[in-house]
Computed example of a mutant assay.
Amino acid sequence: MDIRSKDAYVRDISALTIDDAEEAGGKGANMGELVAAGLPVPPGFVLLRDCYRDSMSAGGVAADLSALHREALDTGSDTGRLNQLCEQMQSLVQKAGVDDAVRDLVLGAYRELAAAAGGEVVVAVRSSATGEDGADASFAGMNATITNVAGEENLLEAVNRCWMSLFSPRVITYRATRGFTADPAMAVVVQQMVNSEKAGVAFTADPSTGARDRVVIEGAYGLGEVVVSGEVEPDTYIVA
């Protein structure tokens, strides 16, 4: 593959703005805005969506993924066939892996992050949906997040797992109900881990009523992923 420039594939979180949401996904772009606002954001970088696209093309699976994805969107209530198609698509993504040119850029950014941290760094590898995750739809908790990742090979494996999560039955079903028919792509956030005692999610509008005169906070002990993924029933706080 031809690398246009490093910034076309990998970018530091602090260099992103909301205008980069198409390439960095909503999660990556909004964290750039948080950095600009002076809020404490753990350092990291984002693999932009062309890392995924070019890796699938270089791996020779892009056309097959597109055809299988179109078929999966039309399976309706045939969950058996949907599961089968999702397994096929995830196997193709795993087969393609991370293209060598992308790999070099990702590992270079990871080494810079480790050097800034003073040694080996433990990271969270987080899916950041592109082109779909916005005002009318949210893929929160549907795509993969892998925490406590250390080491270069483990990082690359986690990136691939994030890409594979584009094609889970839950995600495909949601995409079909929202009328998303374009071939999906994904950016990936790589961010230094925080050993949190408690974590959670704050909603600036009440998710059950839409009321904007309150903030709803859902929290639990440990990492926030258990809240977002629905693994635990969180404590809920409503703040005026």
Rank of each mutant, 00 (worst) to 15 (best):
Thr145Leu: 01
Gly222Lys: 09
Ser57Lys: 15
Tyr221Ser: 13
Ala129Gly: 09
Ser138Lys: 01
Glu225Gln: 14
Asp78His: 07
Asp133Ser: 14
Val228Gln: 06
Gly151Glu: 06
Tyr174Thr: 04
Phe45Lys: 08
Asp78Ala: 11
Val123Asp: 09
Leu73Ile: 08
Val216Met: 12
Tyr110Gly: 08
Pro184Tyr: 00
Ala67Glu: 13
Ala101His: 10
Ala137Met: 06
Ala15Trp: 05
Gly97Asp: 11
Ala220Glu: 12
Ala63Thr: 14
Asp136Val: 05
Asp213Leu: 00
Gly230Asn: 07
Val93Ser: 04
Gly60Ile: 09
Gly151Met: 03
Ala29Val: 03
Ile146Tyr: 12
Leu155Ser: 10
Ala62Cys: 03
Leu92Asp: 02
Ala129Met: 10
Ser5Arg: 12
Gln94Arg: 14
Arg4Ala: 12
Val10Trp: 05
Asp213Gln: 04
Asp206Val: 06
Ala176Ser: 15
Leu68Tyr: 07
Ser165Ala: 04
Ser66Gly: 12
Gln191Asn: 08
Ala58Arg: 14
Glu71Asn: 03
Ile146Asp: 01
Asp74Arg: 14
Asp74Gln: 14
Gly134Trp: 03
Arg53Thr: 15
Asp74Met: 09
Ile172Ser: 04
Gly219Ala: 15
Glu120Trp: 02
Leu65Thr: 10
Gly119His: 09
Asp206Ser: 11
Ile238Lys: 02
Val125Thr: 03
Gly230Lys: 03
Val190Ser: 10
Thr17Ser: 15
Asp54Trp: 00
Gly131Thr: 08
Arg53Glu: 12
Ala109Thr: 12
